[in-house]
Design a protein around this nucleic acid. Sequence first.
DNA 1: CGGGTTCGTGTACTTAATACACAAAGTTGA
DNA 2: TCAACTTTGTGTATTAAGTACACGAACCCG
Lengths: 248, 248
Amino acid sequence: MISHKIVPNISVDCVVFGFDFEKLNVLLVERELKDEKSGKILISDHTLAGYHIFEDEDLDSAASRILKGLTGLDNIFLDQFGAYGQLDRVSAPRDKVWFEHINKGFADRVITVGYLALIDNTKVTLRLKDRNVSWFPVSMVSEMELAFDHKFLFYEALQALQRKVKVEPIAFELLPDYFTLSQLQKLYEALLGTSFDKRNFRKKVAQMHYVIPLKKKQQGVAHKPAQYFLFSREVYEKTRKGRISFII
Amino acid sequence: MISHKIVPNISVDCVVFGFDFEKLNVLLVERELKDEKSGKILISDHTLAGYHIFEDEDLDSAASRILKGLTGLDNIFLDQFGAYGQLDRVSAPRDKVWFEHINKGFADRVITVGYLALIDNTKVTLRLKDRNVSWFPVSMVSEMELAFDHKFLFYEALQALQRKVKVEPIAFELLPDYFTLSQLQKLYEALLGTSFDKRNFRKKVAQMHYVIPLKKKQQGVAHKPAQYFLFSREVYEKTRKGRISFII
DNA sequence: CGGGTTCGTGTACTTAATACACAAAGTTGA
DNA sequence: TCAACTTTGTGTATTAAGTACACGAACCCG
């Protein structure tokens, strides 16, 4: 990367999901603005992880760059879920105040491209740097204040995730390399907000030849140890099948 | 709409699909550039239906506007399939020549948002206006020359269509209000490039309670007349169900 | 009224979905 | 050391959906 001139009217926002073996979480960045003289807090809320794209990078690279900055990780699963160009994306008073203060040469009207990111929580330690970044339960977002149209974007991403998860094996991106079937089941339950019968769930997994049992078992747990499994993308690609399945 | 100032670095491209009861077609716009002095043809190929967005319209409106201009129709089914911002989107020599000639204040680097449009072929008569617009069989696109990255965008759209058609009842947008089951079957076969057994296909349709038989039959055909059916979105919305179905 | 064409239907078999309960393997602590 | 605790891992019966396959019925035409 040579120059870092931003494109003033195009940004990328990443909705980063993680799973802590209990529930789904989303990564949000703290936004705070203090009055320089009085020290009074003018704005205190959260935003998605996003920034303008640079003149010399494409959209996917911009998303990767942003995620690398927050998590230190490369090769994060990324999937575009939409481009948003509503005229009133930035209409709340506090968002206008924010723009007046930061004054970084952003355009009045910004089109943003939304990316869904899935992270293996066990691999990441957040980089706080100058801004505060942390995980919030997905169920908590409805009660939070998010900047701009980021709450809307978040729900767009969540919907896209729920749609996609039924149709492609992307949920595995949220798990470590080894996982137990109970963890996998909990993940699907968290993603879809439903619950499954354990035996039927496992019967289904048994048909997924790309979920492969390992020799390893859990250790040090106060109950019968579970077997570990592995997701193999290669096997998936080789054995996938299409089907019309929207009926009813 | 008040002003019509364009946003120089953001465009919308529509991949418009139609079905003529035999095969899938796509709408393409002729692009021709003649040398003003010699009259020699410098460029002669096709583009998707696209244009820059205006400063005072959002992305969906821009796509609707473009389609209205070409077809005269409002309320065309539209679905975003992606945003594209590769640095080399416009790299072919003839595309650069084109930009030099038209010189309309477009930026060097343009991000485009792709829209999939589905049209009921029986309702549309193309508006030629100053540019030539016509239908081409989808199977012919591979052999055609398309401007910019439009061939790539076309295949992106086709893939998105094939993916979506398996999961949502959007195929009906390509059919007239009344259709026969054989037409519906041909449509799915054209969309997915497969063929289905007639009896099994109809068994499947029988489960879709939102495909509703009418009293009307075909008339004036030289064979047993087929019954007409109707797609009801209301019934669909009421009876839809989710399911994990990506297995194998 | 015979030939041509597409429509519309049924059955047998295989595969997947659902509903449901209990013994086995490990840890903990009395 | 064994009893209590916790989570794992498994099977069967029933219903629903997928697949493979062939022929008479309805209409037009000449």
